[in-house]
Each structure stands twice: as structure tokens, then as C-alpha cells.
């Protein structure tokens, strides 16, 4: 545990070293931090602010403006569903209902066992092949409740 902590600190520091030189490095830095940690650790915000010579309020403001960035860890799996019009026209409501019922959580929430986080997305650009669902970053088109069921079972997340 102690070792893990030390290693992590180095990782964030090297990310800051890479991006703080750039005039517009804060957003790429957040992407990089979230890639390594899965989220932006709140307790490290003072350090991030110092590296960019910004106030903590500024850093927090940028962080919370963008839907991509989160201050909490997510579940072991992330399921993102498109909520936009083109997918609605192809029956995404049934897919969304199925997911909410099956997982027992609403958008932005993680199942009690920490397995799955359900996130909304407003368009993957897969509009000609909707409904669209991404599971752990892999996009699936022409989604139906049945197909989704198979995918969820495949990742061992279905009750």
C-alpha cells in the first residue's frame, strides 16, 4: 500500500511536469491523470493548481465544467449509453430502461457492488447504426436489450 502510494505520486508529478509547460495544458493533464487513476483525486488539486500557477478555484472550475472528468472512482466496468435523438429514433429508450432496471442505478451512479457505472453520452457519431452503447470504451451499434444482456453477462455484471 505504502509503495503503491509513492509510485502514484510520481505518476501525477510526471504528468504535471509534462503538461504544466503548455499554455493550455490543464485539460490534457486532466485526461492523462484520469487515464492513470480512473478519476481526478481531489486531495491532489492544490498540487495541480501550484503546477499550473492557478488558483484552486480555477482548477476546480475547469475540472467540473467538463462531463468527462470525475472526482470519484468509477466501477470496474463503465457502460455509456447514447441519449441523443438519432438513437432515440431507433429505440434507445428500451435499451436505457433495460439497463436502469437490470443495474438498478440511474445515470451517473455505480452499482452497490462497485461493478458497473452507468453514464449518459450525447452522441458517439454512430447515428446511422444506433442505438449505441459503449462498454469499457468499446462501442457497440444496433444495440438491443437482448444483445446488451449477452454483453453484460459476458462481463459478469448481470445479477
Amino acid at each position: 500500500m505504502e509503495n503503491g502510494k509513492v509510485e502514484r505520486k510520481d505518476e501525477l508529478e510526471s504528468i504535471l511536469q509534462n503538461f504544466a509547460r503548455l499554455a493550455n495544458g490543464l485539460i490534457p493533464a486532466f485526461h492523462a491523470i484520469q487515464n492513470s487513476y480512473g478519476y481526478i483525486p481531489k486531495e491532489r488539486l492544490p498540487e495541480i493548481a501550484r503546477a499550473f500557477n492557478l488558483s484552486q478555484a480555477d482548477v476546480y472550475g475547469v475540472l467540473t465544467f467538463y462531463h468527462d472528468f470525475r472526482l470519484e472512482p468509477v466501477g470496474r466496468h463503465v457502460v455509456s449509453v447514447c441519449r441523443a435523438e438519432a438513437c432515440q429514433a431507433n429505440g434507445s429508450a428500451a435499451v436505457i430502461d433495460h439497463l436502469r432496471r437490470k443495474l438498478g442505478v440511474d445515470f451517473g451512479k455505480t452499482t452497490a457492488d462497485g461493478e458497473v457505472t452507468l453514464l449518459p453520452t450525447y452522441c458517439f457519431g454512430n447515428c446511422a447504426c444506433g442505438p449505441s452503447v459503449a462498454v469499457d470504451g468499446k462501442l457497440y451499434g444496433r444495440m438491443s436489450a437482448q444483445r446488451l444482456e449477452r454483453i453484460l453477462r459476458g462481463m459478469g455484471a448481470s445479477a
Binding site: 493550455n24 490543464l26 475547469v62 467538463y66 468527462d68
Partner: peptide, 20 residues
């Protein structure tokens, strides 16, 4: 690379975002 904000497709919002 943006970070999931629809409004950043508006050009002045995009420029703000591009400035970090």
C-alpha cells in the same frame, strides 16, 4: 482533445477550452 462539452462546438467556447 476536448472533454465532453457540447457547447464547445460553439466557436468562442471552443477557443476558451482550447486555451485550457
Amino acid at each position: 482533445v476536448g472533454a465532453g462539452a457540447y457547447v464547445c462546438g460553439e466557436e468562442t467556447s471552443l477557443l476558451e477550452s482550447l486555451e485550457g
